[in-house]
Simulated scan of single mutants.
Amino acid sequence: MNLAEGVQTVSLVVLSAMLTASAVGVVLLPNIVYAAFLLGGCFISVAGLYILLNADFVAAAQVLIYVGAVNVLILFAIMLVNKKQDYAEVKLGFLRSAITAVVCLALFALLTVTVTSTNWAVTAEIAALPSTIVLLAQHFFSDYLLPFELASVLLLVALIGAIVLARRELVPDPITSGESITDDSLELLERPKEQLAASSSDK
């Protein structure tokens, strides 16, 4: 992506501010739903940074996989569980928070020193880089064709195995001659296959 130098600088500052604010909100907000939404903001900000680095495929994968799949899965898990429980007070909680803050500040200082002391090779000329999608497609369908196909077969086998393990058979309860047919007796009760095998062996 060939952008002007001013546009790149402004985009970098805005995306960095969004990423930092979202990450701080994920850590500090007590509401887990808001934290999950801010986690999606972190992923989108990282995708924007990938676009500035001309990594268009990595940016698209970041949005599709992390925002569209992982973050949505986290939100569904939070909303489906929705367990209200009074948490017990953590012993020495202030000490743990202080140690965590010291470690985070030390890592931030280390990264700051690394960034400022490294001699970055920056040139004024912006080179037109080829699309990463074309290069990845060429490697996938030439050099890495066999591992790519094996990975797809492995994912298919795992998906089929998950479906088989989670499958349940609908088995109606038998109605004896003395029982009257009611609305409840017409419902198909869901029972696992192990319970069905045990009942058939008892007979």
Rank of each mutant, 00 (worst) to 15 (best):
G48Q: 08
A23S: 14
I163P: 06
A162C: 12
D202V: 03
P30W: 11
I99K: 10
G178L: 00
I181F: 03
A109E: 04
T112M: 08
A124C: 07
T112F: 12
Y50N: 08
L135R: 14
D86I: 02
S199H: 01
T182R: 06
G178M: 03
I160T: 08
L49T: 02
S180M: 12
L52A: 09
Y87A: 11
T118L: 08
T9N: 13
A60Q: 02
P147N: 06
D173P: 05
V90S: 13
V164Q: 03
G161H: 01
P30C: 06
H139W: 05
Y87F: 04
A127Y: 04
L170D: 07
L38V: 06
L135P: 02
L29A: 06
K83F: 09
K83M: 10
E5P: 03
S97Q: 13
P172T: 10
P172C: 10
L53G: 07
M79R: 08
Q195N: 06
P174N: 05
P147L: 00
V46R: 06
L53S: 05
P192S: 13
A101R: 07
G68P: 09
I175A: 00
G93N: 13
A88K: 08
I78M: 11
V103L: 11
E194G: 02
L64K: 13
Y50A: 02
D202T: 09
I74F: 06
N2H: 05
A21G: 10
Y144L: 15
P147H: 04
E187Y: 10
V113C: 08
Y144M: 11
L186R: 13
N71S: 09
S185F: 00
A4W: 00
T182A: 10
A4D: 13
L15F: 08
R96P: 07
Y144I: 12
M18P: 00
T20H: 08
A21F: 04
P174V: 02
G6W: 01
S131G: 13
I181N: 07
D202W: 00
S131T: 14
V14M: 15
T116R: 00
F57P: 07
L105T: 03
L146I: 10
V164H: 01
N31I: 09
V122P: 04
G40R: 14
E125N: 14
D173T: 11
V63W: 04
S200R: 10
Q8M: 02
S177L: 12
D202I: 04
T176L: 08
E179C: 13
